[in-house]
């Protein structure tokens, strides 16, 4: 499980509180990931933590049929998703039978949170039709 550093701790603390918080640059206006105390694009130190929409699209994925020990009971869908705010991150897609027909690329997703081994991880599920 992840061991936060001083620079990334706010991300993990927010996840525990059920929020997806990443950083946004005050100089160039872009959101970026993963956390660091300067902008990933323009190196400005003028950055702030913001709560993002939690909406994303499915960029790519694999369905892992050979999970490592400890991962047998979690979603096998290892996915690359793109937040509506721009950054991409690795995650699991949950709340759906892990089969290719349920996972078309560009599927709309929404963040949710799963507790695993004392840590809370942001994961994503298909957005409900009427939501």
């Amino acid at each position: 499980m992840p061991r936060p550093t001083p620079e990334t701790a706010p991300y993990w603390e927010a996840a525990k509180a059920g929020e997806l918080r990443i950083q946004k640059c005050g100089a160039c206006g872009r959101h970026y990931f993963y956390p660091r105390p300067f902008c990933r694009y323009c190196a400005s130190p003028d950055v702030a933590w913001v709560t993002v929409s939690g909406r994303a699209r499915l960029v790519s994925y694999v369905i892992n049929r050979r999970p490592m020990p400890g991962f047998e009971s979690v979603s096998p869908v290892i996915a690359l998703v793109e937040l509506d705010e721009g950054p991409r991150l690795m995650t699991n897609v949950v709340g759906v039978e892990p089969a290719p027909e349920n996972l078309p690329l560009d599927l709309r997703l929404r963040v949710t949170f799963e507790e695993r081994g004392g840590t809370v991880l942001p994961v994503f599920q298909p957005e409900e039709e009427s939501a």
């Binding site: 694999v62 996915a79 840590t119």
Partner: peptide, 17 residues
Amino acid sequence: QFEAPYGAITPYATFTV
């Protein structure tokens, strides 16, 4: 911190994504 917790550890489940 940001990939391995999701099972993106082994080459066949990471390099392939």
